[in-house]
Design a protein around this nucleic acid. Structure first.
Length: 1125
RNA sequence: GGGCUUGUAGCUCAGGUGGUUAGAGCGCUACACUGAUAAUGUAGAGGUCCGUGGUUCGAGUCCACGCAGGCCCA
């Protein structure tokens, strides 16, 4: 009976299905977790995907990485719980719902209620859960799908509220403002998504001004700064320069007022403002109105020299003046000399860069107080100047006699043409133009021109947008910057650069986390405030909310609870209906904002367990995570929010090791997109190639943090080269083990020390492999691990061990050597099944079971329930590994020599000659001499050494050593060494050193500073590689020729046996037609050899064979008949 | 525009701390082997190591500036 299953051909996708069914039936995943009950935990956090879209091939990548390390740690003895999760809130869900319903945000609350809308979102968001679960199973990603966390569920949100309240109580939650795209025409802020709609950015011609800012402490000296939004100039409160840029002071004249003056701008921008033709003009000869304006550089200085310079504001409106350090020069890292003057005007309220820079520099912006005493920008939400500026402009228009298309009142100075005035009116003047004229007249403008650029427009109103400060709730992350940075340094990032670079820099340039989103489907901000904003509170639990509701009912502010007769739902609109009572007894309303969905996912370590309301001990045992993995695009998303919440609330990291993987691109390196049709369908790919080759390809092809150019050719190659070879090796084992009725008996194995050299070699290699794979996986490096396994399997085990050991398997009956060979091969295969199992879990389990089914109870049910194989250091034999490498190299050299002389391996040759320069080298080769002889089919190996007198040595400088010692003189020294002959080499070998003359000087070159080798044997055909030289005796004697003929015949008979479909153990009779020449002689001479090899009971010559098979050999023809006995 | 990242053979990728002749697999060409055979071995062709400067006796490797692709952020 066959103990080991044999396979003609293997369908990898079927193995996937079979093993998956096996896992399910036997609850292998559950067992792999339960088996480790009480063991040390290894905590993994699942970054929740969103199920409102179908999964793509890149999800296979991400999930494979997660799975590999969780499986590995399980084998290593840890208990690894993996709770799945779903991300359910956010804009993509809303947009999808709107698309399907054919509505826009404006319809919400009108044609559709918030209640209805959110119900729709809730239905939509889990739409593709089934596909996701399917994929997860099919690729073998082990994660608990039965009890996942879901971010829209009330307990989850309750945990979020708890965390928010912690922040609120620590005074880390505050209301401020941020510069956002805003449409005055529509009266609403726009998301970046809305701004990226096609057609939003349009080329428009705007009036641009290069304004002159007069230095406070220098006569007639002005800083030039350029802007395409002149209306922001009244809000200017600082100017930014590039610290390392070069600036020049130029003596010249104002082109509008012709006044003599000195201006300051970037050196690289000089040509944009001054005509080179005017370079040599004399400043004294300038007449007002001259076309060419002379100029003269009087000083060059660096940007950093300008820092702190004070200047006078362009618009001296008393209400707008601000205390020092306003109106000074600061450094801006984004300043360039691409356009403008290399000096950038900053208006805190109207630019995100401006805002950030001024906040960092501690410089006030230009704001005025409204009736409530709040600071507001000088442009209102309708997009027009407040009267404080409007009045000034109107006065100046009168003063400078400027006529516009209509009489502009102080509240009619719109910064863009929002009233849609007739721009074709002959006197039409935009506010930008009016400002320009005023500045020109007041010697405050150096250049005014129309400038065409791309500017964003509101997709609803088609009107230009403004960047405008809007109210938002923030988490004061900047207060924890140092701790965030310090904790990050303890995190092990793969690749490291993402942690230090992308993530580290992000932390260094941290701004407060803007939590607010003006949306409907998401976690509501649990903050209630009185209408005047004087009192507020943050609700941290459902109980607290219900208490508050009761209080409000008692007070008469609420008629009844919005939750009367329904389950608690913390979403809008229900929470919006809740009114709370302030400490002073006033009504409090919820701030209408939702929070950033990244808070949802960043809080999963706590919220997935409904912490702290439930599962406190589970949380404690699983915090922080040992390992997480997501795409590198999550750096500022999930990675950041996980880290921030952990540091701010728990003064801890939330993950210790993280892999940030790259993108999966199409085979040409383009981004995959459903629209372009180059997206790879993971289900189709799985069906075709099965999960193992796909997973293996993705991890072995390149490091996961490099982008992967996904090409199915690569999957095919992995399947053929690695899985095919491995399967072949297994089949070979199974075939002969079954013939010999060999069954591996763990209780009775041949001690390694008693096995053949070849066995001990592959076992040594195997130990090295175990160590290497373990080291790589411990360092979260799956790619080198997979490559090492592949290399061992293909190059060492299959192409060397099995090839050389073949004869031991098929020759004779069971004997100790044969048993050891079976055991060795079996152990290698078994270990491979284990170390490959994290990466290729299906095939590995299948292989493991095929190997172990015969020994029943003594093995585990599944490879995933085993312990990681421990390497045995005592089995590592470095000398033997070197010897075997020499055998491989020598064989390769002999093969190439045979090839040069067209001598087939089947033709035996007498001997090879190997020069050896040391006794040690000789011993190493002698160890494997037998192997070499049979591999290359030669009778003997001889060695020649110094005593032979025929060794020809050559010498090369060892550059690494000599370079360090001689530096610039290296060339001379190495030239001298290369000129050495026999005597010098002999001398240095004898004395340990040899002198070299460098002109006058003499230096001693030491023996270890040169490399001596032997690359020639006079009179022999030799080949050399990596310092190893081999010569082959190519003489074919009569005897060798006869043996060659015998081998040739054996070969042909074997082929015929196979053609006839004979089994390995079948016996035959051979009849040959007599030729009466040296062929007959050869065959007779080697008849017993031929008979043994071909299992021929009889070998007879006859005179005439009528139905014989004609064989054409190299030099002769044969006619023969073989028949089964 | 900024930060990070990648660029080595036709393709996919290796190439600690600088060392003179840059490797592997696939593909291609030729030859061989044949009791693993839809497997295997050997040899050959194929390189501006993205470019330009620099440091050095010596640069794929270190530095600077570019170019091209990618991600994130503005």
């Amino acid at each position: 009976m066959k103990k080991y299953r044999e396979f003609k051909q293997v369908q990898y996708p079927e193995i996937g299905e079979q093993i998956l069914a096996f896992w399910k039936e036997n609850h292998v995943f559950e067992q792999s977790v339960e088996n480790r009950q009480g063991a040390e935990t290894f905590t993994f956090y699942e970054g929740p995907p969103s199920a409102n879209g179908t999964p793509g091939i890149h999800h296979v990548m991400a999930r494979t990485i997660k799975d590999v390390f969780c499986r590995y740690k399980t084998l290593k003895g840890y208990q690894v719980k993996r709770k799945g999760g779903w991300d359910t809130h956010g804009l993509p869900v809303e947009l999808q719902v709107e698309k399907e319903l054919g509505i826009t945000k404006e319809d919400i609350g009108k044609s559709i209620s918030v209640e209805e809308y959110n119900r729709k979102c809730r239905e939509t968001v889990m739409r593709f859960k089934h596909e996701w679960d399917d994929l997860t199973e099919q690729i073998g990603y082990w994660v608990d799908l039965d009890d996942p966390y879901i971010t829209f569920e009330a307990p989850y949100i309750e945990s979020l509220w708890y965390l928010l309240k912690q922040l609120y109580d620590k005074d880390l939650l505050y209301k401020g403002y941020t510069i956002q795209p805003y449409s005055p025409a529509a009266g609403t802020g726009l998301s970046s998504h809305e701004l990226n709609q096609p057609g939003c950015y349009r080329d428009v011609k705007d009036t641009s001004i290069t304004a002159q800012f007069k230095l406070a402490n220098e006569e007639d000296t002005y800083i030039l700064a350029w802007t395409t939004t002149p209306w922001t100039l009244p809000s200017n409160s600082a100017l930014a320069v590039g610290e390392s840029l070069e600036y020049v002071k130029v003596k010249t004249f104002n082109p509008y007022t012709f006044e003599a003056q000195t201006v300051l701008l970037a050196k690289d921008r000089l040509h944009a403002y001054f005509n080179p033709k005017a370079k040599d003009l004399n400043l004294n000869e300038y007449q007002p109105g001259d076309k060419l304006i002379p100029f003269q550089i009087i000083e060059t200085l660096k940007g950093r020299d300008l820092l702190g310079l004070a200047y006078e504001p362009l618009f001296p409106i008393p209400a707008l003046l601000q205390p020092y350090p306003a109106f000074t020069v600061v450094a801006g890292d984004y300043v360039t000399t691409e356009d403008g003057t290399g000096i950038v005007h900053l208006a805190k309220a109207f630019g995100a860069d401006d805002f950030r820079t001024l906040v960092q520099q501690g410089i006030p912006g230009i704001f005025v107080k409204d009736e409530q005493g709040n600071e507001v920008p000088v442009v209102d939400k309708q997009g027009r100047f407040l009267p404080v500026v409007g009045n000034y402009l109107a006065e100046k228009m009168a003063e400078h006699d400027i006529t516009a298309h209509k009489n502009l009142a102080s509240d009619e100075f719109y910064v863009k043409n929002y009233p849609q005035d007739d721009e074709t009116h002959p006197d039409y003047k935009s506010t930008d133009v009016i400002i320009s004229i005023i500045l020109k007249n007041e010697n405050k403008a150096f250049k005014v021109e129309k400038y065409e650029h791309s500017y964003p427009h509101c997709w609803r109103t088609d009107m230009p947008i403004l960047y405008y400060p809007l109210e938002s709730w923030f988490i004061k992350t900047t207060a924890y910057k140092d701790k965030l940075v310090a904790h990050n340094k303890t995190i092990h990032w793969k690749p490291e650069a993402t942690g230090t670079g992308r993530f580290g820099n992000w932390l260094e340039n941290l701004v407060d986390w803007n939590l607010s989103r003006s949306r409907f489907w998401g976690t509501p901000l649990p903050i209630w405030r009185t209408e005047d904003g004087s009192e507020s509170r943050c609700v941290g639990s459902i109980a607290e909310l219900e208490e508050g509701i009761q209080e409000a009912i008692a007070k008469g502010y609420l008629e009844k609870s919005p939750y009367e007769g329904r389950e608690i739902d913390l979403h809008r609109p229900y929470v919006d209906e809740v009114i709370l009572v302030s400490p002073s007894g006033k009504k409090m309303y919820r701030e209408p904002d939702l929070i950033d969905v990244w808070f949802d996912s960043g809080a999963m370590p706590y919220a997935q367990w409904h912490y702290p309301f439930e599962n406190k001990s589970v949380f404690d045992a699983n915090y922080p995570a040992d390992f997480i993995a997501e795409g590198v695009d999550q750096t500022r998303g999930w990675f950041f929010t996980l880290h921030t919440l952990a540091v701010m609330l728990f003064d801890s990291v939330s993950f210790k090791n993280v892999i940030a993987n790259g993108l999966v691109l199409d085979k040409n390196g383009n981004k995959m997109s459903k629209r372009l049709g180059n997206a790879v369908d993971p289900f189709k790919t799985l069906k075709e190639y099965g999960p193992d080759a796909l997973r293996w390809y993705m991890l072995s092809n390149a490091n996961p943090w490099d982008n992967l150019k996904f090409n199915t050719d690569g999957v095919v190659e992995v399947q053929r080269r690695f899985f095919g070879t491995l399967q072949n090796s297994y089949n070979f084992f199974a075939l002969y083990a079954n013939l010999d009725a060999f069954v591996y008996d763990p209780a009775n194995v041949t001690p390694v020390g008693e096995r053949a050299e070849l066995d001990r070699w592959i076992i040594s290699k195997l130990q090295s492999l175990l160590i290497e794979v373990e080291r790589a996986l411990d360092d979260y490096d799956a790619t080198p691990a997979s490559r090492a396994i592949m290399n061992f399997t293909v190059d060492q085990l299959s192409n060397w061990y099995v090839r050389l050991a073949r004869k031991r398997f098929w020759r004779g009956d069971m004997n100790p050597d044969k048993k050891a060979a079976y055991e060795t091969l079996y152990e290698c295969l078994l270990s491979i099944s284990q170390v490959m199992s994290p990466i290729a879990p299906f095939y590995a389990d299948w292989l493991y079971q095929n190997l172990t089914n015969a020994i029943g109870q003594q093995s585990a049910l599944s490879v995933h329930l085993t312990d990681w194989p421990k390497p045995v250091p005592a089995w590592i034999n470095a000398d033997l590994e070197i010897s075997m490498e020499l055998a491989q190299d020598i064989s390769s050299l002999v093969h190439s020599l045979r090839k040069k002389d067209r001598l087939k391996v089947r033709q035996p040759l007498q001997k090879i000659l190997i020069p050896v320069l040391s006794e040690q080298r000789k011993t190493q080769i002698q160890h494997v001499e037998e192997l070499i002889r049979s591999e290359v089919n030669v009778k003997e190996v001889s060695y020649i050494d110094d005593t032979s007198g025929i060794l020809v040595k050559s010498v090369k400088p060892n550059f690494a050593l000599l370079g360090k010692k001689y530096g610039p003189k290296l060339k001379q020294v190495s030239q001298a060494i290369q000129g050495w002959g026999k005597e010098e080499i002999a001398a240095i070998e004898r004395n340990g050193n040899h002198p070299v003359h460098l002109g006058e000087e003499e230096v001693l070159v030491l023996l270890e500073e040169v490399l001596i080798s032997s690359e020639d044997i006079p009179g022999w055909s030799v080949a050399t590689e990596r310092g190893l030289t081999v010569a082959l005796d190519v003489t074919v004697t009569e005897e060798l020729k006869q043996e060659g003929i015998a081998r040739e015949l054996v070969n042909r008979v074997q082929n015929l046996r196979k053609d006839l479909g004979l089994e390995v153990q079948d016996k035959i009779r051979i009849q040959l037609q007599r030729l009466n020449n040296e062929v007959d002689t050869a065959i007779q001479l080697f008849s017993s050899y031929i008979q043994t090899e071909t299992q021929a009971i009889e070998l007879v010559f006859v005179d005439k064979l009528t139905d014989g098979i004609r064989l054409e050999l190299d030099d002769f023809e044969l006619t023969l008949i073989i028949e089964k006995i």
